[in-house]
Write a protein that binds this DNA or RNA. Sequence first.
DNA 1: TAGATTGTTAATCGATTAACAATC
DNA 2: TAGATTGTTAATCGATTAACAATC
Lengths: 214, 214
Amino acid sequence: MAWSEKKVPRQTVKRLPDYLTYLKGKADEGVINISAPVVAKGLNLNEVQVRKDLASVSQNGGKPKTGYMLNGLIMDIEKYLGYDNVKDAIVVGVGHLGSALMSFKGFQNHGLNIIAGFDTDNDLIGTEVNGKKIFSNDFMIELCKKLNIHIGIITVPNEYAQEVCDIMVKAGILAVWNFAQVHLKVPGNITVQNENLAASLAILSKSVKIDNIY
Amino acid sequence: MAWSEKKVPRQTVKRLPDYLTYLKGKADEGVINISAPVVAKGLNLNEVQVRKDLASVSQNGGKPKTGYMLNGLIMDIEKYLGYDNVKDAIVVGVGHLGSALMSFKGFQNHGLNIIAGFDTDNDLIGTEVNGKKIFSNDFMIELCKKLNIHIGIITVPNEYAQEVCDIMVKAGILAVWNFAQVHLKVPGNITVQNENLAASLAILSKSVKIDNIY
DNA sequence: TAGATTGTTAATCGATTAACAATC
DNA sequence: TAGATTGTTAATCGATTAACAATC
């Protein structure tokens, strides 16, 4: 095998974008080499954890005493996360949240390019958000197949989420980023990433309660 | 001790909103009793996990053969999560995401009431979003103290997040919901809940890559 | 009673942290 | 060489899942 990717734990994948942000900041400061202990301190993480995380994606590894070559490490992480290979995506449901996502500049740097929005509202269809056209849902399958789009973002009200998801599957979407409060049923080959704001809110709200009582 | 709350694991807290949504749906269908195995099947979870989760927040427990009283269970979860006791919050940074959050109807049912927005943009100050006034950041400390607000939501660009957070701390905020890609430094008694979209995106993007190659 | 479901104790799993030998 | 840092193996921790006795 020419190049075998090590098995990278899910939790590590989640931390990689943070490393990337931190490391890029350091690169801007002109730093050349960086060690796991320094990164750990900067991000408030355990040193061994950082060492393992970086080792799991770094192609050349680090050198004792000096650490990693900063630029190489940044490239390795970007490559691992696929940021070098920006993927097209669509947003379905152009309400407040949907148009916020369509307007967000940061996604390009994270390998995601939202190219269009979809909605059922005739007042929205034909308009643009952040220079991106809004189409009727009826056009979803045709457009996704033509442009080979495999990422779908769901920002419709909960009650329409499953129905939209079903259309996405028919359109050839492989990964669904779901902002609705619904457990989507999908075929086995499709990935669903739920953005569970209610779960975050539960923890947040809980922490205030505890802090207030004790 | 009159009423001692069992220790509830963090992961359980995260699932509670899902249970609540599911159970309320069942209540609307007129169901009276519900068992852990049924909930597990409905939400695609492990049966034992559901039983433990429910046991950890239910005051009266369930009965073998019949399960839990649906209404009692719903009330127990709502009470545990503090949904019966809606807390006021502010949003700082009224861009696309900030105004999306201010416009979102669902938060009220999750114990959160956003009462105002803050921004530094003079064009925004004095206007309203979803009937909620936008104030200058300069007014944050005064308003939070006067109205006893302890939850702050940060939706400003990354480079301003720490500075906004510092003001929140001075204003008496105890829990920060942070949508910026920044590790906020806060005193020990303050909770920060990071909404890490980049982390979700990393996992999502990874899944597409894998699905495409193999 | 028989059977489904509860609550709990034990086993497994994955991730984090600690310990340590190898090395620049 | 001495010391910092790497990569890896072992120990710990928390959460999930399995096993099982109690009970309606």
